Amino acid sequence: MTLLRIDASIQGPNSASSALADRVLEQFTALRPDETVVSRHLGAHPLPSDAWQTAVFGGFTPEADRTPQQVEALALATTIADELRSADAGVFALPLYNWGVSQHVKTWIDLAIIGGGPQAQLLQRKPVVLLTTRGGAYGPGMPKEGWDHNIEYLRRILVDVWGADLTVIEREFTLVGVNPALDEFTEVAAMLKKEAEEAAADAGVALATRP
């Protein structure tokens, strides 16, 4: 079994989304220590920001006329699509930034679509755990209700385009303890963190014991 892990946080060791992914992997590898884990960290090692447009134009250029940059971009797109296609399961830690997916994630998705084709179900019926985190709160009645343009976009791509069997684990208020304006939510944030960590651990067990 090959598990593909994708991280996108720019927070390094302080990343809340990566910490949840670690929790999933801890449980998964404890039960299945010999399985292959392929990792790509989009935040620590960003994909070239111009790779997508270069690959798009390269795809419309006769192979013999492609520039070295187009050849390289198309090869990168194929590699990214193949990582998804070759995986048996996925753990994707993709936090919300500026009310949506980060540029790192968007580039990754765009390149995968170029490399695999717009109709390719690269994750067809494969179990994928999506771990997403938000600094504030975006639920019903909150001032930022409706501002989360991350989750539904990722569902559209992962499920409707790529065909994944998706489990979503969310954690809000990750900026509590960082932003003093949120200090009144300390207890709520601690509860949400605990719930997310438990859900991540359960997801790791579920991946490992899936038939």
Rank of each mutant, 00 (worst) to 15 (best):
L111Q: 12
I157D: 01
G139M: 13
L130P: 01
P127A: 15
L166T: 01
W162T: 00
L166W: 10
L158T: 02
G135N: 01
L158P: 03
R155M: 10
E170A: 10
D165E: 14
R134F: 13
E152D: 15
G141R: 09
L130G: 05
A137H: 07
R156G: 03
A120M: 05
L154P: 04
G136K: 04
D165Q: 13
N150H: 14
R171W: 09
A164E: 03
V129L: 12
G141N: 07
Y153Q: 03
I151K: 11
Q119V: 04
N150Q: 15
D110T: 10
D160F: 00
L166Q: 11
A164R: 08
G115Y: 04
I151F: 08
D160Q: 01
M142H: 13
M142V: 05
I114P: 00
G117S: 10
P127Y: 12
H149S: 12
V128T: 08
I169N: 05
Y138R: 06
L131H: 10
G163C: 04
I151D: 12
G135R: 05
T133S: 15
L166A: 07
L111K: 13
G136T: 05
A120K: 06
V168S: 04
R155H: 11
G146C: 07
M142T: 14
D110I: 11
A137R: 14
Q121V: 03
R134E: 11
I157F: 01
I114N: 04
G136P: 00
G135M: 02
E145F: 11
G115W: 09
R171A: 07
T133V: 12
Q124R: 12
G146I: 02
G135P: 00
P127G: 15
G115C: 03
D160I: 00
I113D: 10
L158K: 13
Q121R: 14
Q119E: 14
V161Q: 05
D165N: 15
V161F: 03
G141C: 07
P127Q: 12
Y153G: 02
G116K: 06
G146R: 06
K144Q: 14
A112Q: 10
L166S: 01
R125C: 11
P140N: 14
R156I: 00
L130T: 04
A112K: 09
A112V: 10
V161D: 01
D110K: 12
E170D: 11
W162Q: 01
L122W: 06
K126P: 08
D165G: 03
G116I: 02
V168E: 11
T167Y: 02
L122I: 03
H149Y: 13
Q124F: 04
L123E: 01
E145R: 06
R156W: 08
E145L: 08
L154I: 08
I157E: 02
I169L: 13
I169G: 03
G141Q: 07
M142D: 05
E152G: 03
V168K: 02
L154A: 10
I113T: 09
E170K: 14
V168D: 04
P127T: 10
V159F: 04
L130A: 05
W147H: 14
G163S: 06
E152K: 11
P143L: 09
N150A: 13
D165V: 07
Y138I: 06
V161A: 01
P118V: 14
V168W: 10
N150M: 13
E145Q: 12
H149P: 11
D160T: 01
Y153T: 08
P140Q: 12
H149G: 15
T132D: 12
I114A: 15
P143M: 06
R171D: 08
L111E: 15
G135H: 07
L166K: 11
